[in-house]
């Protein structure tokens, strides 16, 4: 299906400045939430002594970041192994 008519109208993210602005907002937010760790003493989820790592500075931030990278790396490996043509079963 071909697109009917491409409009001339400029949309929000057609302007790279807006995309950059959004990205910077995210960077700032990330820095802010991780810096709060320095001033606010988080309660530990587990009782004292079971899992001390969660009290470390930025534990959750690092965990989230690494998860995404890990998922991408493993999934790329899986794609090598499992990828088939779209009509494989037809």
């Amino acid at each position: 299906m071909k697109p009917p008519i491409l409009e001339k109208k400029n949309h929000l993210f057609d302007n790279p400045r807006n995309v950059r602005w959004l990205r910077r907002a995210l960077y700032v937010l990330c820095v802010v939430v991780v810096l709060i760790d320095l001033v606010y003493h988080r309660h530990l989820t587990f009782e004292e002594g079971i899992f001390s790592a969660e009290g470390w500075f930025g534990f959750y931030a690092i965990y989230g970041f690494i998860t995404v990278i890990l998922v991408v790396v493993v999934a790329l490996g899986m794609r090598k192994l499992l990828k088939r043509e779209e009509d494989y079963y037809d």
Partner: peptide, 19 residues
């Protein structure tokens, strides 16, 4: 406060990884 903070750290840094 802890829960909101840790959840935001986890999620925002996942978004950061993607970005």
């Amino acid at each position: 406060t802890t829960h909101i903070l840790t959840q935001l750290q986890l999620l925002l840094f996942s978004v950061l990884g993607f970005t």
